[in-house]
Design a protein around this nucleic acid. Sequence first.
DNA 1: CTGAAAGCGCTAACAC
DNA 2: GTGTTAGCGCTTTCAG
Lengths: 352, 352
Amino acid sequence: MTGIRQLADHLQLSIGTVSRALNGKADVNAQTRERVLKAAMELGYVPNQSGRSLRKGTTSTVGLILTQGNSLGENNDNFFFGVIHGLQTALKKHKLDLVLLLCSRDEDPDSFLQRMVAQRIVDAVILTATRTHDERFDILRRANMPFVTLGRSESLGDASWIDLDFEGIARSSVTRLFGRGHRRIAVAVPNVDANLGPLFLEGYRQGLADCGLPFDENIVFHAETSEEGGYDVAEKVLATEDRPTAILLIAELMSVGLYRRLGEAGLTPGRDLAVIAERESPVGRFLLPRLTCFRLDLDALGRMLGEMLLSNLPTFAENYKDVPKGKIWPLELVEGESDPPLEMKETLLSDG
Amino acid sequence: MTGIRQLADHLQLSIGTVSRALNGKADVNAQTRERVLKAAMELGYVPNQSGRSLRKGTTSTVGLILTQGNSLGENNDNFFFGVIHGLQTALKKHKLDLVLLLCSRDEDPDSFLQRMVAQRIVDAVILTATRTHDERFDILRRANMPFVTLGRSESLGDASWIDLDFEGIARSSVTRLFGRGHRRIAVAVPNVDANLGPLFLEGYRQGLADCGLPFDENIVFHAETSEEGGYDVAEKVLATEDRPTAILLIAELMSVGLYRRLGEAGLTPGRDLAVIAERESPVGRFLLPRLTCFRLDLDALGRMLGEMLLSNLPTFAENYKDVPKGKIWPLELVEGESDPPLEMKETLLSDG
DNA sequence: CTGAAAGCGCTAACAC
DNA sequence: GTGTTAGCGCTTTCAG
């Protein structure tokens, strides 16, 4: 356990000088600094984080709050791994570390957050899985803890946020499907209070309006955003009186279950039911037919999220003046094989 | 910022008494304790972690080291989310917190770990994605940091570990497929230095030996443990001279790509190529045909991992004397639809 | 440019 | 049963 004391003794210097040398203060002899740095390296000295935090009043770590079993489904965690990389890139510039704080299923997200911020184990946090009404914003404000969120919420206040363009993709998906001949387009949204549900639905309605199509509650399906949820949705689609010819899925994982259920019914995804899903993922890319979906640059998103956070930290705000307060993150359509034009079908219909 | 000082002032008590009350020490008046606890609750007091750590020399947090882009593939992170829940259950009993430390792609895992342990931000760590030869064990031993690993390694020494029974599942899979009429069984293993590769292969060889089947290097495929890797494997299978009738996959994600490639070739997974994959997952459950795979209790595994760690911490070792030093975690076959008996095929062949 | 000393918030040893 | 005090490792005044 090499502490600064041992290092100082070994160098025959005072701990003050050693500390200043290590922290790159100007008022230290260049030669002395060199000696200190060399010895620190050799002895493998790294400052004790507790001592440092206590003295400085900051921990130099940022917490990403992940909520297990959240509205986004259990499995698309890999979404975060992309974002995290960008986050770390942004934070690294200021030697800030990132830790993930995982709120387990059987713990209340609000009290979990309360505990984490009270402990002052991090200087700032990034919130995910925002609910439409979310108490956590107040908790953080009360604790005076800087934060940004991935996801909008009605409780946002003046907090910084990034969110995917759920309205945009829903709206443009409807238009695209309309252009491909579809007149009856269903949608699948989460069955829980996640803020993205209403947004997606809103875009869907706008898309319908754009195309002069009627809104029909009977083809708005609420389900889990998982494979199983997709299976359930397909089940409902099959049972629908005037069966839709296309469907928008809020999560790509749903397509797996949907494909299976269609297959069980002897139907072919794409041909018998066109599918567009929210996010590009390896699974979607290797489904047959390949999923038409939306791509986004997770790394860039993470970087911007990091920069937003930095712009909220007094120490760094100066360098991040031009970072926006909120951002709707764009997604780009990736053409797959799951939403071919309806032409053939129409021909068949007009024949009958 | 309510500190113990403010709390003490507010209560007209010394900080010593307040501290003892809060920490459940015996020598404090029951009535006083009640007052303290009540006031702490009201003022939302939570001890500052830095102050506490500095004084006690321990942080009461455990770090789970996750390596991004590791040998397990990018996407099956949800594996960890199951394990983490169990881990937290075990650690919670002793009020230990868990933080996830994510080593990003562009950072060296060894130096990342070095930094994390030197900072003393955690009291102990859990290592994952163990390599066959892994420097990190020595780093931890040098730093005198207790640890357990999820995954075996040649560098283990006397460290505690849990690992899935890769030999076992490979071996029994071969036997099962043999029983179902298969005589030419391929295997797909990782193309990187992950310790599970050789283990899986070893079980595969044992299984072949059990059945009196020859080992043929031409049907041992090395690939990424991802959807894409599965696609590549299928490609190679199709190009194989004496085409295998069955295949073992080290990761269930591979099946997605494999299914697709077979589909592209007009072949049906299961019927034209039987598939058994390592781990049960939602994706596999909703593939068509449903994947035959192996199930394990992630939560229980996490709990045991936590208990193993506790048995390595001086403070808690006493309570965990009967926890084993190492454990090969059993998996249970989950019958799917992807490895039906070969009978029909055989009939067809004998007809031709 | 360097050393001495204060003090961040907390717990534990000791005194009463 | 409670108050007082030392000190965990570190950074940052303040002298010199």
